[in-house]
Amino acid sequence: MRIAILVEGATEKAFEPILQDFLKSRLQQTNLELKLITYDGRIPKKEKLKRSVENLLTSKDAFNAVIALTDVYTGTNDFQDAADAKAKMKTWVGNNPDFYPHVAQHDFEAWLLPYWSTIQKLAGHNKSVPGGLPEQVNHNKPPSYHIKEIFEIGKCKNSYSKTREILRILKNQDLMVSINQCPEFKAFINTILLLCEVDLIP
Rank of each mutant, 00 (worst) to 15 (best):
L133P: 01
C156G: 11
G124N: 12
R42N: 11
V53P: 04
I201E: 10
G75P: 09
V72D: 06
L170S: 00
P101G: 13
N138C: 02
P142C: 13
R26I: 03
I201H: 13
V103H: 05
G9K: 02
K148A: 15
K157G: 06
L193W: 11
L167R: 15
E8S: 11
Q20N: 12
A82V: 06
N77H: 11
K157H: 12
A123W: 09
Q105D: 06
F185H: 02
A85I: 11
F185I: 05
L194G: 13
K24M: 04
V103N: 01
K90R: 15
I201S: 13
K171L: 03
F99I: 15
D21S: 15
G132M: 04
K35N: 15
E33A: 10
N96I: 15
Y145D: 12
I37R: 02
P142V: 15
L69W: 01
N64F: 04
T91E: 10
P17K: 14
P130V: 05
I189K: 00
H102P: 06
E152C: 00
N31H: 10
V198Q: 06
P130D: 10
N190T: 11
K162H: 01
M176F: 04
Q173L: 02
Y100Q: 13
H125A: 15
H102V: 00
K162C: 12
K24L: 00
E12T: 07
G132W: 11
K86G: 08
I166E: 05
K121E: 03
T191V: 11
R26H: 09
L49R: 02
P114F: 12
V137W: 05
I166H: 03
H146S: 06
N180C: 12
D174Q: 04
L69C: 09
